[in-house]
């Protein structure tokens, strides 16, 4: 940490730790608002009006503090994770057993 000498570059430097934290905090607030309003896919066209009316301010804050690619990535990831979680719950409700060992070496 400490002093970051900003140099003139064609590409923007990546967000540093403080920026990342700011972004993640804004994201968490926005996502908890989405959860409170039971919105799963915040990128879906149908849910966009609800998102805007219910969590509009938090969304603007989130978009302001995170890089555009991250904004998209986090929302996609949230939806994927939710879908995955639901699927696992469904399987477990149907009597599926979790693997007795940990799946190491899994990809992103």
């Amino acid at each position: 940490m400490g002093f970051f000498g900003k140099t003139e570059e064609a590409t923007r430097p990546p967000p540093n730790k403080a920026k990342r934290k700011e972004c993640w905090d804004a994201r968490d607030k926005f996502f908890s608002c989405l959860a409170a309003n039971s919105i799963d896919n915040s990128l879906d066209e149908k849910s966009l009006p609800t998102v805007k009316s219910q969590c509009g301010e938090l969304k603007a804050d989130f978009e302001g503090k995170c890089v555009a690619t991250w904004v998209k990535y986090f929302q996609e990831k949230r939806f994927n994770d939710l879908t995955r979680q639901r699927y696992i719950e469904k399987l477990e409700a149907d009597g599926a057993q979790p693997l007795p060992f940990k799946l190491d070496n899994s990809r992103k």
Binding site: M1, G2, F4, T7, E9, T11, P13, P14, N16
Partner: peptide, 15 residues
């Protein structure tokens, strides 16, 4: 490598 020059990587790793 297109974006991560030695300087950028150095800055990044300071965290």
């Amino acid at each position: 490598p297109a974006r991560d020059s030695p300087e950028i990587v150095e800055q990044y790793l300071e965290d």
